[in-house]
């Protein structure tokens, strides 16, 4: 961006007559812009405005598909019901635990693994391909493979490993339900962190590293003063994108625990789903949906603040 601005400066001042044709061009530019960008803007605006305003409307009326009738205005009653429901606190804390734990696991392991594979060794290409593979597995497959083939308390691979070491196999989904979900989701998202961080590491200044090493910097100093600052932006991006997706984790819960036992693996997304499509309470589910939107926006506000600027400012 900066370079084009610098180049444009002297050119336009040196060649005054060109300005007129530029003006004509800018009219054309705005016409082209309107013509080509507006379809996308329009559909995205509709996609946001129509359903969201419907959600707001539904959240303020009594509306249950099982009891059709007059949908009277009830004010904030739905919100009150949703927030005081026993599932709400569970849903909130599970959502935060799930997002927080998965972020922590994927970022820490992601940094370590991408550092590990960032040096030349035999079969580097294959190792990379193996490492990023889980990202391309569909969530329902991921959940069922883990639930049945790996974590099954009798015939699962983990049970066999536990038995091999003389320990009693763990019934993961009933003893540690939320942890099991965290494990599954982390496995799926770790490759995303590795993929981004690995790419970022390739642009690390090798000469600077070498110079620091010659100056007697140890591996820890190198990591904390050169590598980690270089990774700050990609880590921020990983956190932002993962947060967007992790706030709405659904399929992994739907196919393994169904939110149970009790509310132990119910996150906000699953809670709203069960209220809407299992109990048919549209009003209540809409109130929950709005709360989810507000939460996501609070998270997004800070995250976009953090990196939104650097996204559009190209180096």
């Amino acid at each position: 961006m900066k370079t084009t601005a610098l180049n444009a400066g002297p050119v336009s001042s040196a060649a005054e007559p060109e300005k007129d044709s530029r003006k004509g061009e800018s009219k054309k530019t705005s016409r082209i812009n309107r013509f080509m960008v507006s379809p996308s803007v329009l559909v995205l605006a509709l996609w946001m405005v129509i359903p969201l305003s419907m959600t707001i409307y539904f959240s303020l009326i009594r509306y249950n598909l099982l009891y059709p009738g007059d949908n009277e205005f009830v004010g904030l009653e739905n919100f009150q019901f949703f927030v005081t429901d026993f599932g709400f606190m569970a849903g909130m804390s599970n959502t935060l635990l799930l997002v927080g734990a998965v972020l922590l696991i994927t970022v820490v392991l992601g940094v370590l693994i991408s550092l590990l594979i960032n040096q030349a060794f035999w079969g580097q290409g294959i190792v990379r391909i193996l490492l990023i593979s889980p990202f391309f597995i569909m969530p329902t497959v991921n959940a069922l493979i883990w639930k049945n083939l790996l974590l099954h308390p009798v015939s699962g691979v983990f049970a066999a490993i536990w038995k091999f070491f003389g320990a009693t196999p763990i019934d993961w989904f009933s003893e540690f339900p939320l942890f099991s979900i965290i494990m599954i989701v982390s496995w799926q998202w770790l490759p995303f962190a590795i993929l981004l961080l690995m790419t970022a590491l390739q642009s690390l200044d090798q000469e600077q590293q070498e110079a620091a090493r010659l100056d007697g910097a140890g591996p820890w100093a190198l990591f904390f003063h050169l590598t980690l600052p270089h990774l700050a932006r990609p880590i921020a991006v990983v956190v932002m994108i993962e947060t967007i997706f992790l706030l709405s984790i659904f399929a992994e819960i739907f196919t393994t625990t169904g939110g149970g036992p009790g509310y132990e693996t119910t996150n906000l997304a699953y809670l709203i789903y069960s209220q809407a499509l299992l109990q048919f309470d549209v009003g209540l589910a809409s109130a929950g949906g709005l709360i989810a939107v507000v939460l996501a926006n609070i998270a997004a506000f800070f995250l976009v603040r953090l990196i939104g600027k650097s996204l559009t400012e190209k180096q």
């Binding site: 969201l52 959600t55 709405s248 809407a276 996501a296 996204l311």
Partner: peptide, 14 residues
């Protein structure tokens, strides 16, 4: 980009 921040459950019902 911000339209991606809208969680799908927020608009599931409508």
């Amino acid at each position: 980009l911000s339209t991606k921040m809208l969680p799908p459950v927020g608009v599931l019902v409508p």
